[in-house]
Amino acid sequence: MSQPTAHRKPSRESAHTGFMRHRGFRWAKFALLLCIACIAAYVWHEPLDGPSGGSWLGYTLGGIALALVVFLAWLGVRKRRYGSSLGTLKGWTSAHVYLGLALVLIATLHSGFQFGLNIHTLAYTLMVLVVVSGIYGIVVYAKLPQEIARLRTGSTRDAWIEELLDLNDEALKLAEPMGPDVHRKVVGSIEKVQIGGGLRRQLYGSKKQKRSLEQFSDALQQRLKALIDSAPPETFNPSATQQSTVMFMAGQLGSGDKSALDLQRLQQLLDVIGRRNALVTRINRDIALHARLQVWLLLHVPLTFALIAALIAHIVSVFFYW
């Protein structure tokens, strides 16, 4: 029943396309054309002493590759120029991806497949590493956001941490009347909970913590079992009901019995600790996913700087020996 909406701003893009499909794969098409043109030139061109960076085509390809490297690295500047109206950052990212892929081919053609143990091949190797780390980046950008959204199911990490603190408080409150050793254990367990941490821990989690969380749960389970075992055997009939054993025992032993109350508390405490441990796992998983989204940049960016340095050395040495 709505009438066609008038467009407010002519400059607005059609909403809702990711950077890979930006403007109908505009940059993919451009990069493809560039590659085809370079391959055609390479095939057509037959220099006297075989293909190399020193022929006129070699210099041309080298020039194109250099321009691409500068353009690709410029993304780091453009993305921080927030006021710039020179295209959208999405467009820049799209161009960065496709031209970066094209760069591998163009630089390879530029080399004329002459590799050796020298500064030129070092620059080439660095470039390949930068592109490979970038490809990994594309893969995580394509996969992880959805995984994070699924993990979060509409909640946020802040809300989880809030809930975690509440569960810790609840656990302490439950542990308080259960004697100093349980209380101490709960306190210890709370102190051991770790969220995030260094990069390694962010990515892979703490093995030690996982073990200690499990150990603590196990210790509580054992205690529960001991309590159940110590109850009079004739009142215990595990097949009598589908209810949890603990609740069954609690009912059987009557409210005045101290061990029944203990059982109930212990079961509650176990529930709380269990919920908390699941939450800790989920938070750390969320942190790990976010870390994986970023970690490749720790390779991609320094390698880019190394590449630029090697490239300068490569260019200087070429012109020096010319």
């Binding site: 607005r12 950077f19 999405k90």
Partner: peptide, 26 residues
Amino acid sequence: LSGGPACVRACPTGAAIRVSPEQFIQ
């Protein structure tokens, strides 16, 4: 600013979009 909202223009992946309610169904 020329070029429209900076938040959308600065999004590298195209996740941020600005829409009017008429476009929700779309």
